[in-house]
Design a protein around this nucleic acid. Structure first.
Lengths: 200, 200
DNA sequence: CGTATGTAACTAACTATTGATTTACCAATC
DNA sequence: GATTGGTAAATCAATAGTTAGTTACATACG
């Protein structure tokens, strides 16, 4: 027998490897952010060689961009805004980020660590704001708050518990993320958004 | 004249130097976070020698803790919660973080990069939640949303525009932080919190 | 007075590590 | 046999943290 342990090389499958790397990068960036993430850890998480990361994605920043792109697209798709219905939007977004905590953290890291907005995302927000304006004109929601502000309120409120300061989550006692607690919070969120957007 | 430029050493004043370092660290951490901040840049910003930073604060993490402590204390003091008055709290907090953007960013970085809550802060949040509960019992605010949830909603809403994704801020066109815009948003915030906490 | 002396404030240059990115190479598979 | 997927090990810059001092200043002593 040879002394060195036999390393079994990864099966040759570019697509699968690329997907594994992206998944590992998503987890790593979600946990540590762009500056805190480590290329070595990403490769290790993926069980792949570091080099492949550069082959498939370019460099650390481009990898981060790829992760951001995927996650923001997913959130946008999971929480549509039909007819400017902010209540439905809020609940859909809450459900999605509760089930996919990484998506929320990636979006937050991005808006903290990168200030340059992407054009596609800007357009997506503009469309949502316009939908809210339409609903205002149709008399479905209050008009004393500008559409952009109202949308920003609702957007943040959907993740207010999930992104609350650790000390606040801990202040209540009990598991702040237990299913029971989340069910309760979901109902609270629904009530809150309803009274927030309704006619005053 | 001698070839080397004469470096004028910093006047010998421990308190002043320490304060300058803390200020520089606050700016650096606010901008880049714990992982992204650079010790050398902090020293340079302060116009002080790197070594002093270690003498006065220990290491990078302890320096970050010192900054966090100062900033969170300041926010807590600037936005008190008398009699569970969430409206007044919200406006006071908004005004403070608008005037002190670093405080908000520091708090955000902290809750993202460090998960261990400090005991003092936990107590502060508990006190606030209790104040809200009292107001609920007194019939001043709605009771169909648990106090902790309601507080979390209001807390996040106070910074929803300031911490909105860059793409959202940019979507509206015009300077998203102009005084005029902020005045408008402040009114929107007031209206929003009022209808959020009022009896349904 | 003037000078020794202890110590606090400060500085420059060094080290040891870490971490992103590359180079050079091997092995499947078409 | 050329191209594609994969690996190990080197490179090179940046960084947190240190070592080894120098200078200002106070206080005490002759």
């Amino acid at each position: 027998m040879s002394g060195a342990a036999a390393r079994k090389p990864r099966p040759r499958n570019a697509e699968a490897t690329k997907a594994l790397l992206l998944k590992a990068a998503t987890e790593e960036f979600a946990e540590y952010g762009l500056a805190g993430a480590r290329i070595d850890r990403i490769a290790e998480r993926a069980g792949a060689n570091k080099r492949l990361l550069y082959v498939y994605f370019g460099d650390k920043n481009q990898l981060f961009d790829a992760v951001v792109q995927e996650q923001t697209d997913a959130v946008l798709e999971a929480a549509p805004m039909d007819e400017g219905d902010l209540c439905a939007f809020a609940i859909a977004r809450f459900d999605y980020v509760l089930a996919n905590p990484d998506a929320r953290r990636i979006a937050a890291w991005r808006s903290f660590e990168q200030t340059e907005p992407a054009e596609g995302e800007r357009a997506a927000f503009r469309a949502r704001i316009e939908a809210v304006e339409n609903a205002q004109r149709a008399g479905r929601i209050r008009t004393d708050i500008p559409a952009a502000d109202l949308f920003a309120f609702v957007l943040r409120i959907t993740e207010s518990w999930l992104s609350a300061p650790p000390a606040l989550k801990a202040a209540g006692g009990g598991d702040p993320l237990s299913p029971k607690r989340m069910q309760q919070h979901r109902a609270a969120l629904q009530a809150a958004v309803r009274s927030l957007v309704g006619q005053p």
